[in-house]
Amino acid sequence: MKKTSLNRREFLTRTAQRGALVASGGLLWAYLLQQQAQATATAIRPPGALAEADFNASCIKCGQCVRACPYDTLKLAPVGDTAAIGTPYFTPREVPCYMCEDIPCKQACPTGALTPQLSRINDSRMGLAVIDIENCLSWQGLRCEICHRECPVQGKAISVEHHPRKLSKHAMFVPLVHSEACTGCGICEKACPTDEAAIRVVPPDLVQGKIGSHYRLGWKNEAGITKDFKPAAKIKSPDDQPAGGLDYLNKGEL
């Protein structure tokens, strides 16, 4: 009997030890993963990449997209790189995406992390170009507009607009990015002639705001607000009665 209980104690201790080892290791591991999963995504992904969380889950890190790219745009992030470990990304200032019509990187992906649903490269949203107007040559009044001319979705993703110049008769021609057409290919960033690119591609989540559906921009949509606009129905309350009090001056009581 004594021997049995000792064995049971040994068994329980050993089980607890093993459990503790696995649990503590597992917790550390979970922290590491959780941190990776929730880290702010700053990498620009290949065309057709799923939303960052789904992409990170689905990508098997095989690099077939990297090899399929004819321009050597894509890289697989090694350990210690800025992008999440082993996943494909590109740095537009070095080599942008040249927007192949047949999207070979997407075709090479075995998992669907680069979604097969992307059929036209112009529909891809790798990132969004943003302009630093303090350092953009055009915004300083020079005639540059290189980004506009290099843009593969020319005229739609980047337009050039008139902009008044202080105290001068001459207008400025300034580039503006339109998110509904910008694919985030980064050709503009690559082409920007300033020392540090004044137009840059970033993940849209990092820079894009959201107005909120309760704002009605009537002047943007003629059919929208004016047609079915009705003033709010008046709520009847005791306060709706003409104010009482001292109105004797008007009533000629004096």
């Binding site: 979970a30 090694p78 350990v79 210690g80 082993g86």
Partner: peptide
């Protein structure tokens, strides 16, 4: 399942080894 990331693939020294040999060396 919990973290939504392929847990071993994100820390696997095996994958780091062949991936970095084939695709460019980092801190793996």
């Amino acid at each position: 399942t919990i973290t939504g990331l392929a847990a071993f693939e994100w820390v696997s020294p095996i994958s780091m080894f062949h991936r970095e040999l084939i695709f460019g060396v980092g801190m793996g």
